[in-house]
């Protein structure tokens, strides 16, 4: 019954979000009390829907790239031939995690100029870390007897990776992707300070013109997207974890 209720709440959030993005003017009267001196309650310089799509596209493109590279690297450093890189890659991940997203973004600008690219690169780099870390955890904490059995049944190294290691690490990898997406959704808003087309544009416009309605609508749309994507991925992880029977989630 509780599952049903929380599902209904999420459905309602999704519907409200879709309505707001398609027809923001319907909400104008709701937002008007937050404005001063007759400022516009709804952001109209660009369509909210197109900003949202551009925001999501950036996050997904960066996450796909991060996933490919991070999972690839994690596989590499857990093979016999790449094991020498394991201590180093662990430390680099730890160091990387201390880099504030704003700093990553700011430091990408001198190399890439303003616009979409520095944001994409910052999202990509910042997204690598949770996925790499989770994949590494997944691949290095496989149950000993299972790995022993995989060798004992005569699987080659490649077959062990494809048929046993990756499937068992999958829920954890998914957990890393989830963390990565949620961080990227928020970091992308800061991308607007370097002129990327994201929902951050609305928030920054609000900050500059002291318009609380703008700040609120930008922030709430991003938060709602994050919550919905987060919950969907948690659900997917549970399904995947149930299938592996190991109960390993991030």
């Amino acid at each position: 019954m509780r599952v049903g209720l929380s599902f209904l709440i999420r459905l309602a959030v999704l519907l409200a979000l879709a309505t707001f993005l398609a027809r923001p003017e319907w909400f104008a009267s709701l937002l008007r009390p937050l404005t001063e001196n007759g400022a516009p309650p709804v952001y109209v310089q660009a369509s909210l829907l197109s900003l949202t799509i551009s925001h999501l596209l950036m996050v997904f493109a960066a996450t796909i790239a991060s996933t490919l590279v991070a999972v690839g690297l994690a596989i590499l450093v857990t093979r016999e031939s790449g094991r020498e890189f394991l201590p180093l890659s662990r430390s680099l991940v730890n160091i990387g995690q201390t880099f504030p997203p704003v700093a990553v973004l700011a430091l990408a600008v001198p190399m890439l100029g303003f616009g979409t690219w520095p944001t994409l690169i910052a999202l990509f780099l910042y997204g690598l870390l949770p996925i790499f870390e989770n994949t590494l955890t997944g691949l290095t904490t496989l149950p000993g007897p299972v790995m022993e059995a995989a060798r004992g049944t005569g699987m080659t190294g490649w077959q062990r990776l494809i048929k046993v290691e990756l499937p068992l690490a999958f829920p954890l990898i998914l957990g890393g992707i989830r963390l990565s997406i949620v961080i990227s959704l928020a970091t992308a808003t800061i991308g607007s300070t370097v002129a990327a087309r994201t929902l951050g544009e609305v928030i920054i416009a609000g900050l500059q013109s002291n318009n609380l309605a703008f700040i609120l609508q930008g922030g709430v749309v991003v938060a709602a997207l994050a919550v919905l994507i987060y919950d969907t991925l948690v659900f997917a992880e549970r399904l995947a974890a149930q299938r592996t029977g190991l109960n390993r989630t991030a």
Partner: peptide
């Protein structure tokens, strides 16, 4: 790996693949 496919191997704690069904586990080799 070819040698191991010819020889049965059973260990303590069984080492069943947790992501595969009983039938799939038995069908491994």
């Amino acid at each position: 790996h070819e040698l191991r496919r010819r020889i049965g191997y059973a260990i303590q704690g069984h080492g069943l693949f947790p992501h595969r069904t009983v039938a799939e586990n038995i069908a491994t080799v």
